[in-house]
Amino acid sequence: MDIAPYLLLATLEGLVQASVLMLTALGLSLVFGVMRVVNVAHGEFYMLGAVGAWLCATLIPGHPAISFAVALIVAPLIVGLLAALADRAILQRINYNPEATIVSTIGISYIIQQLTLMTFGPDARAVDPPFYYNIRFPWFGYSSYKFFIIGVAVALVATLWLLMKHSKMGLLMRATQYDRETALNFGIPVGRVYSAVFAFGAMMAAVAGVLVVPNSQAHYLMGHDPLLMSFIVVIVGGLGSIPGTIAAAVLIGLSDGLLSVFFSPTLAKIASTLLVALVLVFKPQGLFGKAGRI
């Protein structure tokens, strides 16, 4: 058996998975890094992005690329607004108490899930990809849309990196992350920074949801897996560390792709969970860099 085509296919699938995972996990990592909030509702923001993409595809007539482009912009904006409202209405009022935020975000998660179920029903909804062009390799053809997912993810992560390292907003976010009280002493409106970070984290998950829906389907329970995988990535990469999250997403995405193609998807999940257990035992601060550092 010639292994090369299988290896290439597994690598490509792994990279697509890593790209989506990278976006989702970075949103979670950013929220934890700056706000110290474990956002259990993160998967629902991902789901809302996917449902938003389906809604756009249903409501906007014409070529699928048009509704997809609208969804890619509008769905994350609406999800971000929703997240900012949740921050103001709930998280700020409980003063970001670590235990209380976990319970509250579980509540937010259930509310979003049930409202989606009541509004759109229990069926899984398919969305057409914005384009159908196949790229020919010597052994098989591969969807160009999947390369598009990788491209968008890389562009967004690069933008986030530049924003955090070189923009005024990024500087204020990092200062707030390191010392909330001193940030207040320098006129940084910590409450507003927190709302912005929570919204931005949710928007990243929503973008991932929009990107993934032409490959899978929009469904009110689809947020569970990405939430679990994001936690795995964030723990392996190091809580709050952007480079660590990126590296862990690529590592886990690729290993998931390779193990799924050569063995079974179940074994891939077992391997990821085992990796988390090993990291928690031998390097609790994560594989990459210092904990809490962006």
């Binding site: 500087l171 990092r174 200062a175 390191y178 009280e181 001193t182 320098f186 550092r293």
Partner: peptide
Amino acid sequence: RLFAELTVAENLEIGLST
């Protein structure tokens, strides 16, 4: 209470931006 992970320039920039 410096922002220990930020550079000297970044700490001063935060002061200037207040």
